[in-house]
């Protein structure tokens, strides 16, 4: 596998309320889902986002071939050092990830 975003059908991130961000990785097929599930560990997500691994909630949704990661925002939405009001850019880190 090379670049995650080229392998899966869609990756998006968004606020889940002002204090959380959630990332949805739509794998597109069961085969890709199984592969990504194996390779995309919480430790990798932690490294990518600088969020402590113990705070990352991971959901593996087989019926949708979706992996979902939710984690607290490092800067609360709209606080003075927040850079992205809607939390949508963090998805690009996942898209560009080399697994």
């Amino acid at each position: 596998m090379a670049i995650l975003g080229e392998k899966v059908s869609k990756i998006r991130s968004k606020n889940a309320g002002p204090f959380w961000i959630t990332v949805d990785v739509f794998c597109g097929s069961r085969e890709v889902f199984d592969e990504v599930r194996e390779r995309l560990s919480n430790a990798t997500v932690s490294q990518l986002t600088s969020v402590d691994a113990s705070l990352i909630k991971r959901f593996e949704i087989e019926s949708l071939s979706v992996l979902k990661f939710s984690f607290p925002r490092i800067e609360v939405q709209g606080s003075r050092f927040d850079r992205d009001m809607h939390g949508a850019q963090i998805a690009t880190l996942f898209s560009e990830l080399e697994l």
Binding site: A16, G17, T22, K57, F59, L64, V66
Partner: peptide
Amino acid sequence: HSVSAHMLYENANPF
């Protein structure tokens, strides 16, 4: 798929 996927949207826990 389109209906169940909406449980993911802006929701930290999809279940």
